[in-house]
């Protein structure tokens, strides 16, 4: 039972991550390879606030959103003025820098030793320390995220994001400031990713930098490529498939020594087939080109 609950918690956390990346990639058309960095910033910011200053989880979560959004401007303001390729390079650099800080600034983050003993979230005396209670917490935040992304994208704001995705020059020609909309979308994506990081830290009660590598960023992109993006259902489909798939593989009794490699080969095969036959993913609106 706990095993199933664990999968549900991870689906909830990944749904938050992929919906936030969906805002950046699927709606705005920005290929970001540093989403795991914002996930990590959320996890580390809330963890350090809770463990060093005894701040309540929910207060730390809000603070981590603000920190993550502010740090997003470090990447977006200089790079989003330039062509798309520079933005990708900027996000790659940011991912490397944030990982470097998490890994090497040992006096602050404990580096590769990680931070253990993270307190479970508590609200009005109720502690979310059981798998079932954590499922409700992550599901509530996942639903809030889906609702948030739906509300802001089913609006003029969302339409303008799509115009930037479709043709930035034409978007300017109708009087929209692409820099404003792109930095806003990127900051919102970063802020929501920080929620996932805080929830992950509160759930695992231990974090280290290996959870927030570029491989994780690429995994999130893979989820959107397979499930689809540019609408609400694509990331949901992708998240469920790619979070559950490794668990299914466990039941095939493939030896642990080769299982991760087989998983990667399956992802690669799925990506190749989708790019050829269904570039919009299984349920998405926006196609990767």
């Amino acid at each position: 039972m706990n095993y199933l609950l664990h999968i549900l918690v991870m689906i909830g956390i990944y749904l938050i991550l992929t919906q936030s990346l969906n805002l950046v990639m699927g709606y705005t058309g920005l290929l970001s390879v540093c989403h795991a960095a914002f996930y990590g910033i959320g996890a580390y910011a809330s963890t350090l606030l809770m463990t060093s200053w005894g701040v309540n989880f929910f207060v730390a979560l809000i603070a981590s959103i603000v920190i993550s959004m502010l740090l997003s401007f470090v990447v977006s303001i200089p790079t989003l003025r330039l062509r798309g390729d520079y933005f990708v390079l900027g996000t790659l650099g940011f991912q490397a820098i944030i990982f470097g800080i998490m890994y090497n600034w040992i006096s602050f983050t404990r580096g590769p030793y990680g931070i253990p003993g993270i307190p479970s979230p508590s609200l009005f005396g109720f502690v979310f320390d059981s798998p079932s209670s954590y499922v409700s917490l992550t599901t509530a935040f996942a639903l809030l995220t889906v609702g948030f992304v739906y509300l802001i994208t089913s609006s003029q704001f969302g339409r303008v994001l799509k115009t930037i995705r479709e043709d930035e020059i034409a978007s300017q020609a109708i009087g929209k400031d692409p820099l404003f909309f792109k930095t806003t979308s990127f900051a919102l994506g970063a802020g929501v990713a920080a929620i996932a990081g805080s929830l992950y830290a509160g759930y695992m009660r231990y974090i280290d930098p290996t959870s927030f590598t570029i491989a994780e960023s690429l995994f999130l992109i893979t989820i959107l490529a397979i499930g689809g993006s540019g609408n609400i259902k694509g990331p949901i489909v992708g998240t469920v498939i790619l979070v559950v798939l490794p668990e299914v593989l466990r039941f095939l009794q493939i030896p642990d020594t080769v299982a991760p490699n087989i998983r990667m080969m399956l992802y690669a095969l799925a990506l190749i087939l989708l790019v050829i036959y269904r570039p919009r993913g299984l349920a998405g609106e926006y196609g990767f080109e």
Partner: peptide
């Protein structure tokens, strides 16, 4: 805007709309 409908292509171009700032749809 290729993936938007003909109607959406027009609606998006109206200036000064409520809902253009991200907090307004909420």
């Amino acid at each position: 805007f290729g993936k938007l409908t003909t109607l959406e292509n027009i609606v998006v171009a109206f200036p000064n709309q409520v809902g253009e700032m991200f907090w307004q749809p909420i």
